[in-house]
Design a protein around this nucleic acid. Structure first.
Lengths: 218, 218, 218, 218
DNA sequence: CATGAATGAGGCTTCATTCAT
DNA sequence: CATGAATGAAGCCTCATTCAT
């Protein structure tokens, strides 16, 4: 009779669940975990609160589900961007581009992972730590291989490699935020990646060849 | 009547206020802004709740005061560590050491600035953004001078410099967290700074000299 | 298509309804009226929730139906146990045995009647009161006849008979719980009935003959 | 200015807490544990809900506190009514009068103990079971001594004594309800006690002397 | 000023119950 | 009829915040 009826839209569970996760990611990103209200999430999802609880059980579970979904999406984006078999520098370059492209396309998801999840206690921090560890692992492998390709004479100490990987990931995270904030003149993901690549590549090469900076007076 | 009563120590407002901020920073760092309760803060500060409200007006104001105090302390630590007049590389090195030393010495304050403040809406995010901008400005100046000292032929484009500065700050932030988490085997602030310096310095030098990495097939 | 599907067994309404009542009695006994959930009842009954509502209309109606069914079963058990025409003491003895046998055999039903129904507001309390009144009536008749058989000189005052009946029924109810709780060494319904009968019989006889206890100093 | 101000009545905690317990007992008695709402209790207590939670922590704790208070009051009433040193029959008589007087004076408390507490899961049932056990213990002692005073030749078997005690307590509980329900013509606690005493006393005497009822045909 | 009494507002969660398919 | 989608209403609990003493 009336095509404009809005209320009881029947939809398969799968679809509804995705809408809920979308809404939850948006609200968690905007407000933070504690300040986000299930009311707002439900409303944004176009569903009633009981339905949200029926499908996702609790605020905690909902947040976990968001983290898991976004983390998997990000990892997949990075993994899918690199061509196993390419040389190390190329793989680093491609991985960075994948990372920046994904974070730019999903700013809310990135905000949840980067800003919210780490600040709200064990259950969530652990899941994000697992994601971050995967990123760090990928980068660690690239650094090691890069060092080898670059003719490294002696293997770099493990602690230093770990530190470098964290530095690189931190730089990337920071640049992701930087390029997202510059509305209007946002650099393309290609430019962002180039900036970081220029910065990092020769640093790695130098390290691989034992050339280090040292304070003059010390 | 009774000299053994310990609780209602009369103290000058200045001292009391500092105790309150100390307590607040600790609780905000541990629990997050929303989950922190004024009750817990007052108790940890050893003061009554009405007094907290008398001095600091509201939870929001209290959080802002925390952010401002910690941000100023951090900036001062970095500024105080560098010797104006020293060459650019030395100043970067000293600034990094100051940064890592301070964040390691004040983990709660750093957690509030880095993890909590940015995730809780405009009023706070703005204050933290101002802090970060100051750090970025310092680094930007160093990069520019470094490029000049290194014999840069043409000035680097502004966007790229900004990106580099953000990358460097992000790397530093990430390393601060990394070195704090490694309980037991936490690297000294000197080692952490060295790791980043090794990584960054030659990158900057290369850039200053126009040597850039470029994708092979592009 | 597939003969192995087990769930949607078509069954006559009568059977389904009994299953539902069985499930409801079990759940109400275990959880109480308010804490029992229609979900749990439907699941235990092996039926879908809409069907439960189709047959039994509402939680309230369902509970009422449980009470009615269990009350009728109990009354029937007691009535069926006594042999009209036997002497009064024998009928009391048989009635008690019937009562204890039935409550022991249907602990959930007894729990619903004794524990749950009386504590949940008028609609249910009335139905249980009706049941209890029937029990009291039976007992009242027995007491009166016992008094006559025992050679009662003057009729007992009505209030006293009513009180005695309530005392007897209360004692029986209490013993039903007592014998059900003593897992392992649960006395047979015969022993339980004997305990109460020994206790009650001579009391009634004495009363019938006007012998009463009186406080010494009063 | 206006003596009719009603809202923020300041009162010492002790007083408020008693008002809350009074209100809670009334509401729990009327509605049952689950159906009672903290809103209604708070309103009846003339306090806000947060204050109820501040003092009594949770619905569960509140219910427990009610049970404990009412149980102690009842036990005290019974204990205080009997004169240690009086003969057994006199003590039974006095105890019953104390019991009926107290339950008649505090029908809500009695309802909570007798009807509500036992039907709502372990935490509460245990507390009530402890109370009931105390009553049963008292009665058990009286029965044993009565048997001895009455010239009991051989000690009664333990199970039988336990059964008798439960029967007597059940009868008393039932009579308490009976006399409370008869509004208008409610028998005095003295009459109620007399009814039960007449009923029970000769039964006990007979048992003590080995006279038992036995089915004719068995 | 310290203390303790007090609360409005709001958040998470759960049910009994109903349609559409 | 069985299924699964859907919700209004209500309940427990907590917190930032304020007075009176």
């Amino acid at each position: 009779m009336d095509a404009t009826q809005t209320r009881p839209k029947r939809m398969p569970r799968e679809v509804r669940e995705r809408q809920m996760l979308d809404a939850a990611v948006a609200v968690f990103a905007r407000r933070g975990y504690r300040a986000a209200s299930m009311d707002e999430i439900a409303e944004l999802a176009g569903a009633s609160k009981p339905l949200v609880y029926l499908y996702l059980h609790s605020k905690e579970d909902l947040f976990s589900a968001c983290i898991r979904r976004e983390a998997e999406a990000l990892i997949s984006a990075v993994r899918g961007a690199v061509d196993r078999g390419a040389p190390a520098d190329r793989r680093l370059w491609d991985g960075l581009r994948g990372f920046f492209a994904h974070t730019a396309a999903h700013p809310d998801g990135w905000a949840v992972l980067h800003c919210q999840a780490r600040t709200h206690g064990e259950p969530f921090a652990l899941e994000v730590a697992a994601l971050r560890q995967q990123l760090v692992d990928v980068v660690t492998r690239l650094i090691t291989e890069t060092a080898e390709d670059g003719g490294c004479t002696a293997p770099l100490p493990e602690t230093e490699v770990s530190g470098l990987a964290h530095a690189l990931v931190g730089a990337a995270e920071s640049l992701a935020g930087w390029s997202n904030e510059r509305d209007g003149a946002a650099p393309s993901e290609r430019e962002t990646a180039a900036t970081l690549m220029n910065f990092a590549w020769s640093g790695l090469e130098n390290l691989a060849n034992g050339r280090r900076w040292a304070p003059v007076g010390a």
